Simulated assay, not measured.
Amino acid sequence: MTSRTSLTLAASAGACALALGVATPALAAPGDDGKAMVSVFHGIPGLTVDVYANGDELLGDFEPGTVTDPQELDAGTYDIKIFEAGQGPDGTPALEKKIEVPEGANATVAAHLNADGDPELTAFVNDVSKVDAGKSRVTVRHVAAAPAVDVRAGGEPVFTGLENPKEDTTVVDAGTVNADVVLAGTDTVAIGPADLDLAEGTNTIVYAWGSAEDENLALKTQTLSGMASAPKGVHAGGSGAAVAGNSPDAWLAWAAVAGAVTVTTVLVSRQVAGRRG
């Protein structure tokens, strides 16, 4: 095994503050008050884990390259502990974090390697604002132990110079695109190619994860739906009358403001080499 499978989890991801404001559609389902949506992406190769929240097991045998569906949570503070599979809840966690989740948040917390191959935690805001009819949003997140990359669609760069742990997003026509990841400014393919199905009214989030040194770079997609807009007008028979869509837009405004969502991590030194496969 290479050096990257012997992970020394001794670092601090610091504090990540995200402020999120959501204008809720008038037609939203009742009972959403005081809730938030949170997903978790596991992007650390070679480490299967159990995830505990406030002392209760949330995810068991959580494997690398897995992203959970968005989970509706009560707004509040959660004590999250991540153990190597089978080692919790009384052992020493490999990763421990407290997450304060405000009402209306939609976010993904990613455990991944930084550019130097050290594990860290990054919280990303998920853009769930409306897109025009026939459109789709695509977001790319660089969470791999690799240098800066360009992301291409059909051989043409769409995102350029993307560095770990940055992200970029755009709105495109819905449909299937052939995408790959190349080293920034070159035609050297690092990941892919792969077909991406960009459905109308969705945000397809693509994670580039793994380790270039260990030659296990890969893509993982997460799709969030419910962002479609009704057509602005449709013909109604021979009268030429138009019927306007009655679904109001929702939007997400976010900024780096301390105190809205705080993610702090305590990473504890552990060795993975020689443990159960």
Results as ranks from 00 to 15, higher is better:
residue 2 T to E: 13
residue 5 T to H: 12
residue 8 T to K: 11
residue 9 L to R: 10
residue 11 A to V: 13
residue 12 S to C: 11
residue 12 S to E: 12
residue 14 G to E: 11
residue 16 C to E: 13
residue 18 L to H: 08
residue 31 G to Q: 09
residue 33 D to K: 13
residue 34 G to I: 10
residue 34 G to Q: 02
residue 41 F to Y: 03
residue 46 G to K: 00
residue 46 G to R: 06
residue 50 D to C: 05
residue 56 D to H: 10
residue 63 E to A: 04
residue 68 T to N: 00
residue 72 E to I: 14
residue 72 E to V: 15
residue 73 L to R: 11
residue 75 A to W: 01
residue 77 T to D: 06
residue 82 I to F: 02
residue 87 Q to C: 06
residue 87 Q to M: 09
residue 90 D to V: 07
residue 92 T to G: 06
residue 95 L to G: 10
residue 97 K to A: 10
residue 98 K to N: 11
residue 99 I to Y: 09
residue 99 I to Q: 08
residue 100 E to P: 01
residue 100 E to C: 00
residue 101 V to W: 03
residue 101 V to P: 05
residue 102 P to L: 04
residue 105 A to N: 04
residue 107 A to V: 13
residue 108 T to P: 01
residue 109 V to N: 10
residue 111 A to R: 04
residue 118 D to F: 10
residue 118 D to I: 06
residue 119 P to D: 01
residue 121 L to P: 08
residue 124 F to W: 08
residue 125 V to Q: 10
residue 126 N to R: 05
residue 127 D to A: 02
residue 131 V to I: 05
residue 131 V to T: 07
residue 138 V to D: 11
residue 140 V to S: 08
residue 142 H to Q: 14
residue 143 V to A: 07
residue 145 A to G: 04
residue 146 A to T: 03
residue 147 P to Y: 02
residue 147 P to W: 00
residue 147 P to C: 09
residue 148 A to Y: 07
residue 149 V to I: 15
residue 150 D to C: 07
residue 152 R to L: 15
residue 153 A to I: 13
residue 153 A to T: 15
residue 154 G to A: 02
residue 155 G to H: 09
residue 156 E to N: 08
residue 157 P to A: 00
residue 158 V to D: 02
residue 160 T to M: 05
residue 162 L to I: 11
residue 162 L to R: 07
residue 163 E to C: 12
residue 164 N to A: 15
residue 164 N to Y: 06
residue 166 K to T: 07
residue 170 T to N: 04
residue 171 V to D: 02
residue 171 V to L: 04
residue 172 V to C: 02
residue 173 D to H: 03
residue 173 D to A: 12
residue 177 V to P: 06
residue 178 N to D: 14
residue 178 N to Q: 05
residue 181 V to M: 05
residue 182 V to R: 10
residue 182 V to P: 07
residue 185 G to A: 11
residue 190 A to Y: 09
residue 192 G to H: 01
residue 197 D to V: 12
residue 197 D to C: 00
residue 197 D to W: 06
residue 201 G to M: 00
residue 202 T to H: 03
residue 203 N to M: 03
residue 204 T to P: 03
residue 205 I to C: 04
residue 206 V to Q: 03
residue 208 A to W: 01
residue 212 A to D: 03
residue 212 A to Q: 11
residue 215 E to P: 02
residue 217 L to C: 04
residue 218 A to L: 08
residue 223 T to R: 13
residue 226 G to H: 09
residue 231 P to M: 02
residue 231 P to Y: 01
residue 233 G to P: 00
residue 234 V to H: 01
residue 236 A to D: 10
residue 237 G to V: 02
residue 239 S to G: 15
residue 239 S to K: 04
residue 241 A to S: 13
residue 241 A to V: 13
residue 242 A to Y: 07
residue 246 N to L: 14
residue 247 S to K: 00
residue 248 P to N: 12
residue 253 A to R: 09
residue 254 W to K: 14
residue 255 A to V: 15
residue 255 A to W: 04
residue 256 A to S: 08
residue 257 V to R: 03
residue 261 V to T: 15
residue 262 T to W: 06
residue 263 V to D: 04
residue 266 V to Q: 14
residue 267 L to V: 14
residue 267 L to W: 08
residue 270 R to I: 06
residue 271 Q to R: 01
residue 271 Q to M: 05
residue 272 V to N: 11
residue 273 A to K: 08
residue 273 A to M: 11
residue 274 G to D: 12
residue 275 R to M: 02
residue 277 G to T: 13
